[in-house]
Amino acid sequence: MALLRDEDREYLKKEFEKKIRNPVKVLFFEKEGCENCDLVKQILTEVSELHPEIHLSIHDVESDEAKTHGIELTPAVVIEGEKDYGIRFYGVPAGYEFNSLIEGIMDVGAGEVELSEETRKKLGELDKPVVIKVFVTTGCPYCPGAVRLAHMFAFVNDRIKGEMIEANSFPELANRYGVYAVPKVIINEEHSFEGSLPESEFLKEVIKAVGG
């Protein structure tokens, strides 16, 4: 049975048609016995059928592809275009996070993201590697805002990685990072904050985290 509603499928087809100008590679990483892998695979399959330039490929977590992308957990999704921007989804991109998946695909397909000049400039000046982890649950309406910013930041600066981590799929990880409310954002393992922040505030946290 199809997961997506017909009306949503139609809407997405039109939006993808409007926005996608470049090929979008959706890489899915799985392993045997992984609890939610089949679900995520089906979501990605249905989405990739909505536009000819969305190319889904499926890899094992032990594959070379996984190594070059630094993927160690499953289910994992990478969205890339002409290069790997550092956009990652761990766990199930459903519920409110489905929107993050869709917007990630559209950004890469459009080859641009909607960030202010100021933000781009400041992100461009960052010369250290940054990993932004955003812990979410699929029932959290405030979470996609944080995921989206992390992914857009990753898009504009190659040193930045933006990772959505759907906490229900990785309870141990959530525990290790002391996640008890979402969204929880962890930058470079050390710096963290809770709640969704507007673009300029989120940026300040990133700059603070790298000691800018």
Partner: peptide
């Protein structure tokens, strides 16, 4: 303790309290 045990959204944070 907001985010460290204090929460205002059940649908968001319930899974952390299994």
């Amino acid at each position: 303790f907001t985010g460290k045990g204090v929460s205002y959204c059940a649908t968001c944070d319930a899974p952390f309290y299994k």
